[in-house]
Deep mutational scan, measured.
Amino acid sequence: FDIYVVTADYLPLGAEQDAITLREGQYVEVLDAAHPLRWLVRTKPTKSSPSRQGWVSPAYLDRRL
């Protein structure tokens, strides 16, 4: 999967189903980028939180090589 970094805090609107909150600087794996406005991502697990999966706007993501 492609690795992206979150460029700004992402707080989903209440109406968005299956969306997750992301923090600036967080790394995520993009699982599904087929839709231009919503990408399915999975967060990297940390010592304090397990990995999470949900939909985010790709405008908040920047690809890492």
Rank of each mutant, 00 (worst) to 15 (best):
F1K: 08
F1R: 09
F1E: 07
D2H: 10
D2R: 09
D2M: 12
D2N: 10
D2A: 13
D2W: 13
I3K: 04
I3P: 03
I3G: 04
I3S: 05
I3V: 12
I3D: 05
Y4Q: 02
Y4F: 09
Y4W: 13
Y4I: 02
Y4S: 02
V5E: 05
V5A: 04
V5T: 04
V5L: 09
V5S: 03
V5Q: 07
V5D: 01
V5Y: 13
V5M: 09
V5N: 02
V5W: 07
V6K: 00
V6C: 12
V6I: 05
V6L: 04
V6Y: 01
V6D: 00
V6M: 03
V6N: 00
V6F: 01
T7E: 02
T7P: 01
T7L: 12
T7I: 15
T7V: 14
T7D: 02
T7M: 09
A8N: 07
A8I: 08
A8E: 09
A8R: 14
A8M: 13
A8L: 08
A8K: 15
A8S: 11
A8G: 07
D9R: 05
D9N: 09
D9A: 06
D9V: 03
D9L: 04
D9H: 07
D9S: 06
Y10W: 10
Y10F: 10
Y10A: 04
Y10H: 07
Y10D: 02
Y10R: 03
Y10C: 06
L11N: 14
L11S: 12
L11G: 08
L11Y: 15
L11W: 13
L11C: 14
L11H: 13
P12I: 09
P12A: 08
P12Q: 05
P12W: 07
L13W: 09
L13M: 12
L13S: 15
L13A: 12
L13K: 11
L13E: 14
L13V: 12
G14D: 15
G14S: 13
G14V: 11
G14F: 12
G14E: 15
G14I: 12
G14Q: 13
A15F: 13
A15Y: 13
A15R: 10
A15G: 14
A15P: 12
A15H: 15
E16M: 09
E16H: 09
E16L: 08
E16T: 08
E16K: 06
Q17V: 14
Q17L: 12
Q17I: 13
Q17W: 13
Q17K: 14
Q17C: 12
D18Y: 07
A19T: 09
A19E: 11
A19Y: 12
A19P: 06
A19K: 07
A19S: 12
A19F: 12
A19G: 14
A19V: 07
I20C: 04
I20L: 12
I20Y: 05
I20D: 03
I20W: 06
I20F: 13
T21H: 12
T21I: 13
T21M: 13
T21G: 08
T21Q: 12
T21F: 13
T21L: 11
T21Y: 13
L22H: 01
L22M: 04
L22K: 00
L22C: 02
L22D: 00
R23S: 09
R23T: 11
R23N: 08
R23E: 10
R23W: 13
R23M: 11
E24D: 04
E24T: 12
E24W: 08
E24S: 11
E24M: 14
E24N: 07
G25N: 03
G25C: 04
G25V: 01
G25I: 01
G25L: 02
Q26I: 05
Q26N: 04
Q26T: 11
Q26E: 15
Q26M: 12
Q26R: 03
Q26D: 14
Q26F: 03
Q26C: 07
Q26L: 04
Y27M: 11
Y27K: 06
Y27L: 15
Y27R: 07
Y27H: 09
Y27P: 04
V28C: 03
V28E: 00
V28P: 00
V28G: 00
E29D: 06
E29Q: 09
E29P: 00
E29H: 07
E29L: 09
E29T: 08
E29V: 10
E29K: 05
V30C: 03
V30N: 00
V30S: 01
V30T: 01
V30A: 02
V30K: 01
V30M: 02
V30W: 01
V30Y: 01
L31Q: 02
L31K: 02
L31Y: 02
L31P: 00
L31F: 02
L31H: 02
D32W: 10
D32E: 06
D32T: 04
D32C: 11
D32F: 07
D32L: 07
A33K: 15
A33E: 05
A33D: 12
A33I: 05
A33Y: 11
A33H: 08
A33G: 09
A33F: 09
A33V: 05
A33P: 07
A34T: 15
A34K: 14
A34I: 08
A34V: 09
A34C: 13
H35A: 06
H35P: 03
H35Y: 08
H35V: 03
H35C: 11
H35M: 06
P36Q: 06
P36V: 05
P36S: 08
P36H: 07
P36G: 06
P36E: 10
L37P: 05
L37F: 10
L37K: 09
L37Q: 10
L37E: 15
R38G: 03
R38P: 00
R38V: 05
W39G: 00
W39N: 00
W39R: 00
W39Q: 00
W39H: 01
L40M: 05
L40H: 04
L40A: 01
L40C: 05
V41G: 00
V41L: 01
V41M: 00
V41Y: 01
V41C: 02
V41E: 01
R42Y: 02
R42V: 04
R42L: 04
R42G: 02
R42N: 03
R42K: 08
R42M: 05
R42E: 04
T43C: 06
T43S: 06
T43I: 08
T43Q: 02
T43R: 01
K44V: 15
K44H: 12
K44R: 14
K44W: 15
K44G: 06
K44Y: 15
P45N: 07
P45W: 06
P45H: 07
P45R: 08
P45Q: 09
P45L: 05
T46I: 05
T46H: 07
T46C: 11
T46G: 07
T46W: 06
T46A: 06
T46R: 05
T46K: 05
T46Q: 07
K47R: 11
K47G: 13
K47L: 13
K47M: 12
K47P: 14
S48A: 10
S48Q: 11
S48H: 14
S48F: 12
S48R: 09
S48L: 11
S48M: 12
S48E: 14
S49G: 09
S49T: 12
S49F: 10
S49V: 11
S49Y: 10
S49D: 13
S49R: 09
S49P: 02
P50T: 07
P50C: 08
P50V: 08
P50A: 09
P50L: 06
P50K: 07
P50D: 08
P50R: 06
P50M: 06
S51F: 06
S51G: 09
S51W: 07
S51R: 06
S51D: 03
S51L: 06
S51Q: 08
S51I: 09
S51P: 09
S51K: 04
S51M: 09
R52E: 13
R52D: 07
R52A: 12
R52T: 12
R52C: 10
Q53N: 05
Q53I: 14
Q53V: 14
G54H: 05
G54E: 04
G54P: 00
G54S: 03
G54T: 04
W55E: 02
W55L: 04
W55N: 03
W55Y: 10
W55R: 03
V56H: 01
V56Y: 01
V56L: 04
V56G: 01
V56Q: 01
S57H: 10
S57N: 15
S57L: 04
S57Y: 04
S57K: 05
S57G: 03
S57F: 04
S57T: 04
S57E: 09
P58A: 06
P58G: 02
P58S: 08
P58F: 02
P58L: 02
P58M: 03
P58E: 02
A59P: 02
A59D: 13
A59I: 12
A59L: 14
A59C: 11
A59R: 09
A59N: 10
A59S: 11
A59K: 11
A59W: 06
Y60L: 06
Y60V: 10
Y60M: 04
Y60D: 03
Y60W: 05
Y60T: 03
L61V: 03
L61A: 00
L61G: 00
L61C: 01
D62Q: 14
D62I: 12
D62P: 02
D62V: 14
D62R: 14
D62H: 11
R63G: 09
R63C: 10
R63V: 11
R64K: 12
R64F: 15
R64I: 15
R64H: 15
L65F: 13
L65M: 13
L65I: 14
L65K: 11
L65R: 11
L65N: 12
L65E: 14
